[in-house]
Amino acid sequence: MDTIYDFNVLQTNGSEKSLKDYEGKALLIVNTASKCGLTPQFEGLQELYEKYHDKGLEILGFPCDQFNNQEFDNIEETTQFCQLNYGVSFPMFAKIDVNGNNADPLFTFLKEQKKGILSKNIKWNFTKFLVDRNGNVVERYAPTTTPAKIEEDIQKLFD
């Protein structure tokens, strides 16, 4: 696997989606949680999406329940929560694991491309990966890095 375009992910309805569909776009890939102290970041992510979507940004949300069980059991509850509370209109995908033996292959790839400070494992909800228009992982952001602090890096992808 050379780029993220080599992966398929599960949509909330259970069908597969090829990330090749996003070829030529900049991506911000995020493991999310609906009941986390960082959940208000959905608001900032949505603002980035609205501001840069027409320029070619896609934000891909992947709900994850691995950190203190902070995600709804039912994916429909997750998507409704995100839409009603934060106006999320960017794509959300099926709930996944990001670490361990059952980690989604996409996140295993992302972690190999950009390791964290002490390890490659994801430490918490809202870890973010910025991918350029060629499918290369260019940056990894800590869970506490707000979407606003990522904006400058996103702008560079469109210059």
Rank of each mutant, 00 (worst) to 15 (best):
G61D: 12
F81N: 06
Q83D: 12
S89D: 05
L27C: 01
E112L: 13
N85K: 08
Q113G: 12
P40H: 02
N85L: 03
L27Q: 03
K25L: 03
F72N: 10
A94K: 07
L38N: 03
Q46L: 02
P63F: 06
M92Q: 14
F109H: 15
N85D: 06
D97W: 06
K25W: 00
K25N: 08
K51F: 07
L110T: 11
Q66W: 07
L118P: 12
E23N: 01
Q66C: 11
K51L: 11
E43T: 13
A103N: 14
I75S: 03
E23R: 06
P40R: 03
I75Q: 02
Y86E: 10
I117Q: 10
E47N: 04
N31V: 00
V88C: 04
V30F: 01
L106R: 09
Y22L: 01
L118D: 14
N31E: 01
L60D: 13
Q66T: 11
Q66D: 12
Q46E: 10
A103D: 13
F62K: 05
F72V: 07
E23D: 00
E58V: 15
G87F: 08
I29H: 00
N68K: 15
I75E: 04
F67C: 11
Y49M: 08
N102V: 08
N68T: 09
E112I: 05
D65T: 12
I59A: 10
L27W: 00
I29M: 03
E71T: 12
V30L: 01
L60A: 11
V30K: 02
E58A: 15
F67M: 13
G61V: 10
Q41C: 05
T39V: 07
Y52E: 07
L60C: 11
L45A: 07
N101E: 15
G44F: 02
G100F: 15
T79I: 14
G56T: 11
L84P: 01
I29K: 00
K51R: 13
G56H: 09
P63N: 10
Q83C: 08
D54F: 05
P40T: 03
F93A: 06
Q66M: 12
K25A: 00
L118W: 15
Q46G: 02
L45M: 09
F62P: 06
F62C: 05
Q83I: 09
F93Y: 12
E50D: 14
Q41N: 05
L57W: 09
H53G: 04
N102M: 15
P63Y: 06
T39C: 06
L28M: 06
F42A: 05
F109Y: 15
N74I: 10
L110K: 11
A94V: 03
K95I: 04
I117M: 13
K55R: 14
G24Y: 00
L106C: 09
D97H: 14
